[in-house]
């Protein structure tokens, strides 16, 4: 992979991870987690595993949806 795309993916992963650790609201944590997932995909595609990329792209939202079953907004 060329360098600029790799640096961009690393920045996406690190910002997503940091924001997902330090946020306190569950919805903010899930949004930051999907930034992290967006950074993982160029590494998978660059290795040539397109079938793995399809499977993980279809499976990963299920995990978020299962987690959302116990999320509930604080009533304002």
């Amino acid at each position: 992979m060329n360098d600029i795309v790799m640096i961009a993916s690393v920045i996406l992963i690190l910002t997503g991870m940091t924001a997902a650790i330090f946020n306190r609201d569950p919805f903010d944590k899930l949004i930051s987690l999907s930034v992290l997932i967006a950074g993982v995909f160029p590494f998978i595609v660059e290795r040539g595993f397109l079938d793995v990329a399809i499977a993980i792209a279809l499976i990963a939202p299920l995990s978020t949806i299962f987690t959302l079953m116990v999320c509930r907004r604080v009533q304002v």
Binding site: M17, F22, R24, K29, L30, L33, T67, C71
Partner: peptide, 18 residues
């Protein structure tokens, strides 16, 4: 986990998975 409940721990547990 920072707010110490099960939901935060579950969401944080997905980070080492990736």
């Amino acid at each position: 986990p920072r707010p110490k409940n099960y939901l935060t721990q579950l969401i944080n547990l997905e980070i080492p998975g990736w």
